[in-house]
């Protein structure tokens, strides 16, 4: 009985420390994403720490900790507003065909809009908003710029929303990015707009 108690008193803290080590090891580099990778020569103490935390790719501690994080689903990252800061706000549209304004260089959907979370009124601030799930999704899709995801997203809305509207199979994914300039009064309050075609199929 005494032996059983002692084993419990040894293994519980060991397992707790393992968990703490694993989430600390996984979270740090994932929260910093590409920031440390930019420092190729690894001149700073930070870069050295991250290199040390990364160990070698295929060593057993790395494989073990990766499996532990996967099984316990302890993936987490805490890069709120940094470096992807609120300096920008961005939206996504799925279009059937495009309209380009040569003067303003704005690109927008021509005809039916298959999906869009672009706001039309940036002057009104809402006390209550329910748009944040789609905002998060489209922001991530734009930042990842992964052709597989963009294709899947575009094709889904093309096939689901265009039924009865058009037989045209063309589809374009359009990113609308706005950069805020709080100090430039002559700039629109929504910021400087840049439209970019992320993916298209004709």
């Amino acid at each position: 009985m005494r032996m059983k108690v002692n084993i419990k008193k040894f293994f519980i803290p060991v397992l707790c420390l393992l968990h703490m080590t694993a989430i600390f090891w996984w979270t740090l580099p994932h929260s910093f994403q590409g920031m440390i990778a930019e420092d190729v020569k690894q001149t700073t103490i930070e870069s050295k720490v991250f290199k040390w935390l990364g160990f070698a790719e295929n060593t057993w501690p790395v494989l073990f900790l990766n499996h532990y994080i996967d099984i316990t689903a302890s993936q987490q990252y805490w890069d709120f507003f940094a470096p992807q800061s609120p300096k920008f706000h961005q939206y996504l549209s799925v279009c059937n065909s495009l309209n380009r304004d040569n003067k303003s260089e704005e690109i927008s959907c021509k005809g039916p809009v298959l999906f869009s979370n672009l706001k039309h009124d940036f002057d009104t601030f809402m006390i209550v908003s329910n748009s944040s799930r789609y905002y998060r999704l489209t922001e991530t899709l734009i930042n990842l710029n992964d052709p597989d995801f963009l294709q899947a997203f575009g094709q889904y809305y093309q096939s689901h929303q265009s039924e009865g509207i058009t037989n045209n199979v063309s589809v374009q994914l359009l990113a609308h990015q706005f950069e805020l300039y709080p100090d430039l009064k002559e700039m629109p309050k929504s910021g400087y707009r840049i439209d970019k075609i992320l993916w298209e199929r004709y």
């Binding site: 979270t27 740090l28 929260s31 910093f32 920031m35 805490w78 890069d79 709120f80 507003f81 940094a82 470096p83 800061s85 609120p86 300096k87």
Partner: peptide, 12 residues
Amino acid sequence: VSGWVKFHSVEW
């Protein structure tokens, strides 16, 4: 981690 990451942000 949130605090540390903020040291990498120009705006922070």
